[in-house]
Amino acid sequence: MASSSSSSKTGLKKMLTLKSSDGDEFELEESIVIQCQTIKHMVEDGFSLIPLQNVDTKTLTKIIEYMKKHAEKTESNKEEIKNFNKEFVKGSFDDQFELVSAANYLHINGLMDLLCQSIADRINNKSVRAVREIFNISNDYTPDEEEKVRDEHKWAHEGGEFDESLD
């Protein structure tokens, strides 16, 4: 699974190795990886092999894909990046949540904003019940308490049907 960056420009660039929780190693240019604040600080401390215990191979592959694309960001390919982002946030909630956790751990602010916005947009019109399911949250209100909380802002629970689906 290990893949190394096969860029022709690697000659002079400083390379770093990221190691996923599954033990797979990824070799990347430093310039790409420093979008990630956590790794940037480790690089500054002199590390060149960076173990990421909280990120599995699947998630890390996605994140590297994101970082590579965004490292190419220029004035001219704005549209391309936009489309890339659009594609990137497609996928199940579970995949997105894995990515959010990783992005949060790695402190990649741009990715964090992108994912949070996309998840927020997706749950915007969900019902309370669907949100509980999606986030695996158990309802800790008693029925009376729940009704009281609802009644504080009745209007927010009215006005059309809310989406009950879980995807």
Binding site: C116, Q117, I119, A120, D121, I123, N124, N125, K126, V128, V131, R132, F135, I137, S138, N139, D140, Y141, E146, V149, R150, E152, H153, A156, H157, F162
Partner: peptide, 14 residues
Amino acid sequence: HLPVKPLVRFRSVC
């Protein structure tokens, strides 16, 4: 990242 209405509704989540 959510607007006001869903936020107020999601006070009921937990």
